[in-house]
Every structure is written in structure tokens, then in C-alpha cells.
Simulated scan of single mutants.
Amino acid sequence: MSGPARSIVVERPGAFRLVEAERPDPGPGEVRVRVHAAGVCASDRELFDGTRPADYARYPVVPGHEWSGTVDAVGEGVDPALVGRGTVAEGFRACQRCERCRAGEQTLCTAGYAETGFTEPGAFADYLVLPARLLHPLAPDVDLTSAALLEPAAVVAAAVLRGAPRAGERIAVLGCGTLGLLAVQLLSAATPVELLAVDPRPRPLELAGEMGATRALTPEQVGEGPGAFDLVVETAGAPGTAADACRLARRGGRVVLTGVPEPGALGLDPVLLLVNQLTVAGIFGAAPAAWSYAVHAFNHGLLRPKKLVSHQLSLASFGEAMRLVGSGDPEVGKVLLMP
């Protein structure tokens, strides 16, 4: 099926254009998705600014790794029953053959980095073509706009699976941006006796309380007392939050780092790690198991991302989306492009 299709192409850092071309056709093992909504995040801004590490970007590129849509066409060898199905999909293009992939650690694939929206064409477009094996079809009655946040939700799900929360534990979340608020929702389902959310901004703290946090405090209110939390999930990526997360954990506690810090962030205190016998894990991306967990939670109403969306813009408003994401305005939540 032919016809026009628009996409945003970032030619090089700081330079983009809205282009129109023939609608792409799926090849063998591929599907074409009609994009419903695509989220804009800080990593998209890094790609646009040229501050993303060179190994994790390829120009020119169509950005967009957070998205939802409907399967529009299938290639040879793909089940035609998928046509018309709402879906999201994994972004990492793991090889499925190396030792790490065989162990279920696809985000550690040794074949080299490839990801939708960074090295492969992404979803800031009317249509997206990708391997069918990456799809996670959605329940028929879910909100496709909210589903565009399932990529960050999958990253959070990976952190929750790694942190292994148990009922009755004391849990803290550092950072109440998109990742942090999604973490609050998933962790509240584990029935902690306490779920603390920490952020310097009033509005995110208010949302954290609405989404399941039992306490929502600024870093100043938390202070630097002895750690008391069984599990701490860090999502902010601020210069000092990884170190803060370790200080919040009790002796023998668990810390999961998901926020990507900029160069120059504070290191972790090896004496604290050793003496307190902390278990510290890092999360970068989401393997298929985490995607399945996030989609299951979303399909059954445990994840409710809609309140996180603050702006819905047209595809032609990409420049405005970049301005909003980089503005630092605390009232800017998740920005969506709606092709």
C-alpha cells in the first residue's frame, strides 16, 4: 500500500527537517506500525543537541524510541492477525545469538549497540517499520496515548525486577520525573509498609502522593540520617543522587540505579558499600521480561501513566517539543508528539 508518510529527520546536531516520502513497506519478518503517539525524553534532546555519546547515536536519524501505535501491515512470515492490533515494541535490536542474549540479558548484547530512534529509524513519524519479534501487543481496550509511556515503564520494570521488592518492606524512590513516578506505581503494587518519594519540586511530589507514595519529601526534608530503607530505586540521574541512594539504604539493603548521570557525577563511597554490605545494581534499557511485566501491569491497570502527560503536540511541532524538554520548567511532564 503506497501513500505519503511524514517523518522528522535530525540531519546532525541542531539541524532537523520534516520530510515526506512514500510509506515504507515491511520486509520479511517485519511489521509496519501507524504511530499513534511518541514520547519525547531527555535522551532525544541529547540526540538533538549532539551531547549523546557517539557510540549511541547515528546521524541522520529519525528519533523516537517511546511510542505506541497500531499494526498497519505485515511482511512475509508474520501473522496477519496482528493487523489492527494496538502495540508497543522493544527498542534494543539485540542479536539473539551471543552469550548474553542467550542468557536473557539482551541489553548487554555483545554484537554492538542498535536501538530504535538512535541508530535505527524511530517513531517521530507517521509510520514505523521494525522486526515483528520486538512487538508487545496490547489489550484491546487500553488507552493508546498512555501506552506511549511503556518504554520508560519497561525500564522501571527492569529496575523493580532487579530490586525484588517484598511485601512489608520500606522502599524509597529518588527522583519523581517520568521514571520515578512510574516506579512509585509499580512499587506500590508490592505493598510496602512505607514508600517514600524524594524530589526537590512540589508538583512531582504531589503526583507521587497520588500514585501511591506514603510520604513525599524534598531532599532537605529527608536529611542525611542513617539509612533505613530495604530497597532504594534511583531514577533522577542528578550528580549526587546515586550516592544519596546508597546513604538511604539500610545495612544489607539493595540499591538500583536507573538515572543516567552526566559526566562529573559523584562517585559511590566504597567504605559505605563495604561496611553496609549494600547490593548495588544498574539498569540501562529493558530486556523482554521487563517489557512483558510492564505491558501486563499496564493492561491490568497497575500502571496509570496518563497524569504524567503534560503536552500533546503535532509532529510539525518537534522544535517546540525540544524547547519544552530542555526548558527545566517543573510544570513540563511527558511531552508527546501525535502524528
Score class of each variant (00 low, 15 high):
Phe318Thr: 02
Leu181Gly: 00
Ala238Glu: 12
Phe298Trp: 11
Asn276Tyr: 04
Pro219Arg: 04
Glu331Phe: 04
Ala164Asp: 14
Val61Gln: 08
Tyr113Asp: 01
Phe318Tyr: 13
Pro263Gln: 12
Gly91Phe: 03
Pro4Ser: 12
Ala287Arg: 06
His311Leu: 06
Ala54Asp: 15
Ala159Asp: 03
Val198Gln: 01
Glu115Ser: 02
Pro137Ile: 08
Thr235Gly: 04
Thr178His: 05
Val74Asp: 01
Leu186Phe: 05
Arg203Asn: 08
Pro330His: 08
Ala164Thr: 13
Ala54Met: 07
Val35Trp: 05
Leu266Ala: 15
Val9Thr: 08
Gly77Ile: 13
Met338Cys: 14
Leu313Ile: 07
Gly328Val: 03
His296Leu: 15
Thr258Asp: 05
Ala316Ile: 05
Leu135Ser: 08
Gly112Asn: 01
Pro219Asp: 00
Ala123Ser: 13
Val173Glu: 00
Gly326Met: 07
Ala245Gly: 06
Phe118Ile: 02
Leu303Ala: 10
Ser292Leu: 12
Glu115Val: 01
Val61Phe: 03
Pro263Ile: 07
Ala132His: 12
Asp44Met: 15
Ala290Asp: 00
Val232Phe: 03
Glu105Gly: 02
Arg166Pro: 02
Ala286Leu: 03
Ala286Ile: 04
Val193Cys: 12
His296Ser: 13
Leu138Phe: 12
Asp143Ile: 06
Val83Cys: 12
Val62Gln: 02
Glu90Ile: 04
Glu30Asp: 10
Arg12Ser: 14
Arg254Pro: 00
Tyr56Asn: 11
Gly14Cys: 09
Gln277Cys: 07
Val61Leu: 13
Pro4Phe: 12
Thr241Glu: 03
Cys246Gly: 05
Pro60Arg: 01
Trp67Lys: 06
His36Gly: 05
Val9Cys: 02
Gln312Phe: 01
Val222Asp: 01
Trp67His: 09
Val88Tyr: 00
His36Ile: 07
Leu273Asn: 07
Thr218Pro: 00
Thr70Gln: 02
Pro226His: 04
Val309Gln: 14
Gly39His: 00
Asp25Ile: 14
Leu336Arg: 11
Thr107Met: 09
Val142Met: 08
Gly225Lys: 12
Thr178Ile: 10
Ala154Lys: 04
Arg247Cys: 14
Ala245Trp: 09
Ala94Ile: 06
Glu331Thr: 13
Gly86Asn: 12
Tyr113Asn: 07
Ala286Gln: 00
Val83Ser: 09
Gly282Asn: 09
Ala73Lys: 01
Thr116Ser: 03
Ser292Val: 04
Leu313Arg: 01
